[in-house]
Nucleic acid binder design. Structure first.
Lengths: 168, 168
DNA sequence: TTTGCTGCAAAGTGTTTGCACGGGA
DNA sequence: TCCCGTGCAAACACTTTGCAGCAAA
């Protein structure tokens, strides 16, 4: 995975561009939200973005965060995802062109991204076999990440301590 | 896919078994819910199960449906899934031992199951590469199914008419 | 009689919407 | 001036929970 915390690239600039071409405005709130998105842990929820952005504008409202992420979604700059039923909140993911997939650690909740190049071939075969037109694929793996496995092996270093070590 | 509507097998019997071994009771409500599950379209929501089961017991309550499906989930007989963020409800899936994956048709909303045998190898490689312990994998494909593609090609047979033809 | 299951209503969570105000183009 | 974006509160959709009564063992 090289770096589990990947670059969100130029979300702010991309968004500014989209705004200009639609007669929209780059307000302080939007900038704070975009920056929060960028500094948040991977795949933040609306609430997580809100809590971070609010540090810069204590009057910021959750509704504004939702409006902004939904707008980013419409513009194709981010994607909403639900990684597990039961955790009822959507997580937002910078929608990069290359298909990227996710591993969710059931111990520390970390979400690791990866490219599954081999998957493309599997899907191609399936599409042919079942005569499907496949537009999008989502692979989510659940299990235990390397750190948590090492931790468990080492001895009592708990998933909780892993989370804390990562600042979550 | 052989048959898109697969056998839910003996959900009722399986459930009875689990009930007996835990001192539980097979009530009418539970039976109606289990049978509704079986006769429902693939991957029903709690609401869909409720609407069907209520035809047999007009006093049935949604809360009872939720309690029952959550219990089935705990017993490992069904699995909750969210196929698309934005459709806020969970869908329930008979949890068969073999990993099975899903294709969601964006035209007629049909959910098609398939076995992706090739996927296992892809995952094995990923697990090794990233040093992950993978316990569960979920592959969801979005696109257009064979029927809807044919329909579109044939001429105006709409996705809606497809749905109706399938009794949804 | 004990205990499990139910219906009901209320609460809870995450997300969306109507509205009036305020500020930028 | 126009109208976009905001905060606020209410509405929403889905799911869960507390409780009292009922029913099966």
């Amino acid at each position: 995975m090289a770096e589990w915390k990947h670059e969100h690239g130029n979300l702010v600039e991309d968004a500014s561009g989209k705004l200009k071409s639609h007669g929209g405005r780059m307000t302080d709130q939007r900038r704070f939200i975009l920056e929060a998105f960028r500094s948040a842990s991977e795949h933040p929820t609306a609430g997580e973005i809100f809590r971070i952005a609010r540090r810069r504008d204590s009057d910021l409202n959750l509704a504004t965060v939702y409006r902004t992420v939904r707008w980013l979604e419409r513009e194709g700059l981010v994607q909403a995802r639900v990684f597990e039923p039961g955790s009822r909140s959507e997580r937002f993911d910078s929608a990069r062109p290359a298909a990227h997939h996710h591993f969710v650690c059931s111990a520390c909740q970390r979400i690791i991204e990866f490219d599954a190049s081999g998957l493309a071939e599997v899907i191609r075969v399936l599409a042919k076999q079942y005569a499907l037109q496949v537009d999008q694929s989502t692979l989510v793996l659940h299990g235990v990440c390397f750190d948590c496995r090492s931790a468990a092996k080492a001895h009592g270093r708990s998933a909780k301590r892993n989370r804390i070590a990562r600042g979550l």
